[in-house]
Amino acid sequence: MSYELPSPPANLPTEIVNTLNESTPERLRDVATYAEALAEHKEGESRLEKSADQDEVEERPDDLPDDVPSKATITTKEINDNRYYYWQWRDGEKIRSQYKGPVNPNE
């Protein structure tokens, strides 16, 4: 362990460097933990924004109803020995479905 004061990054504002230099080791560890968690959160938000931008660019399938989001996928459900297609998507904590039509057994 070095007893010399470490050099701060050049792009760190002086007022932050001064505040950190005046802080206790416990507070510095708390700041480090918070800064790491905050960085991960902001990186995650950035990825979500990029993903949302890409989703907006994607074209909607021609047979997608107006009230079904473009992120919906097609699933198959069997009811009374008959198979049907449904649009399905996540809406918050819920899974939503909308009827698409019967499955053609010749496909």
Rank of each mutant, 00 (worst) to 15 (best):
T24C: 08
I16Y: 05
G101W: 03
P13L: 01
P69L: 11
N80T: 08
Y84F: 15
Y34F: 12
K50P: 00
E56F: 12
T24S: 15
K42S: 11
D67W: 05
T33W: 04
W89G: 03
E78Y: 02
P102R: 12
G101C: 10
T75W: 00
Y34P: 00
T33P: 00
S70R: 12
N104P: 13
A52R: 09
S23P: 03
P105C: 09
G44D: 14
D66R: 01
V103F: 09
A37H: 06
V31F: 04
S46G: 08
R60A: 14
P61Y: 09
I95H: 07
V103Q: 06
S2P: 10
E26W: 03
K50N: 08
L38Y: 14
T76N: 07
T75G: 00
V68A: 05
S51H: 07
E59T: 14
I79D: 06
N18C: 07
N21R: 07
G101V: 12
A72G: 01
E59M: 12
S97D: 12
H41C: 06
S2I: 13
S7H: 06
L20Q: 01
W89H: 01
Y86A: 11
P25D: 05
E78H: 02
L20P: 00
N18H: 09
R29E: 15
S2T: 15
E78D: 10
Y99N: 07
Q98T: 10
A37M: 02
Q88G: 01
K71N: 15
